[in-house]
Design a protein around this nucleic acid. Structure first.
Lengths: 146, 146
DNA sequence: GGCATATAGTTAGTTATGCAACTAATTTCA
DNA sequence: TGAAATTAGTTGCATAACTAACTATATGCC
């Protein structure tokens, strides 16, 4: 039993320190080398807007698993770079809809292949079953903690 | 094939946004509720020192998968809190050995159970085989990218 | 209608991360 | 031996994270 706990502690350090940042860092590096001046966090916001444009900031919090202040500042920076704009919702004046600019729509084509390449590189030698298991475990972990 | 790529993109967002931060945040919260004023990142450094004391900063970089500036500043903060001290190595004057104080050694007992509880909670319903798969996948990802 | 409560978003303060550029000590090797 | 390259660690700058406290709008309910 203590042995089992030790392994779980090990897993913690692996989860926290390694895989997530390794992939993110590589993708970020690939962006930079292609002359793209966006951070991986900014890209992850755009990624959700490309799937569905004009989401509220709260909805972006939910989909990117970030808290409200983080999204506020990510949107601030994306707005500075003219990649999104805040559009007040007509039906609820508390809400900002975050909408893509044309520049951001163009960016999609320039990054999506790069992202897929990076994921393919990262997941070389990992089969579909293993990927499904990882997703399942993460979902369970998330459900257990929220 | 495009379908496959989409799934990998999905996995990316899961890796980046969810599991790592969910566990870390919970553990951090548990620390705070127990009156422990350390961050999860500081704890992760102490965790390695508890296993082997007086490591060089470079060795801490390797074991925690952080870069040198990150370790420099984590050690700065841990030193402020009098949990570690930098001891110049006698054999190589470039090297600082990071050594635990008595306060940090005491902290081990107060946090290890909390960490194990948190991991047990996070991993409820996850079996050993799944954990092994996650660790294996992360190792492959890491090897692929470094 | 009007007060309590909930929800959306912002701001302030602290910590952490990544990169680039830097100093100092050590090693390599001609 | 001594110059070049490597290694350990620090500093400056920009971005991002979490918490707590805040404003503004909307909803529930009497």
């Amino acid at each position: 039993m203590p042995n089992n706990q030790f392994k779980r502690g090990e897993l913690y350090s692996v989860i926290n320190g390694m895989a997530s940042t390794a992939v993110a860092r590589r993708l970020q590096k690939n962006f930079r080398q292609s002359g793209l001046e966006i951070t991986i966090e900014q890209w992850s916001v755009l990624y959700h807007l490309w799937k569905e444009d004009c989401l509220s900031q709260q909805e972006l919090c939910n989909r990117t698993f970030r808290d409200k202040p983080s999204i506020t500042r990510l949107i601030d920076n994306l707005e500075k770079q003219k990649l999104v704009k805040r559009v007040p919702s007509r039906s609820d004046r508390r809400i900002n809809l975050v909408c893509l600019t044309d520049a951001a729509k163009e960016l999609q084509n320039r990054t999506i292949d790069l992202a897929n390449q990076t994921m393919n590189e990262a997941l070389t030698g990992v089969n579909k079953e293993e990927i499904e298991t990882v997703k399942l475990v993460f979902q369970k972990v998330y459900d257990n903690l929220t």
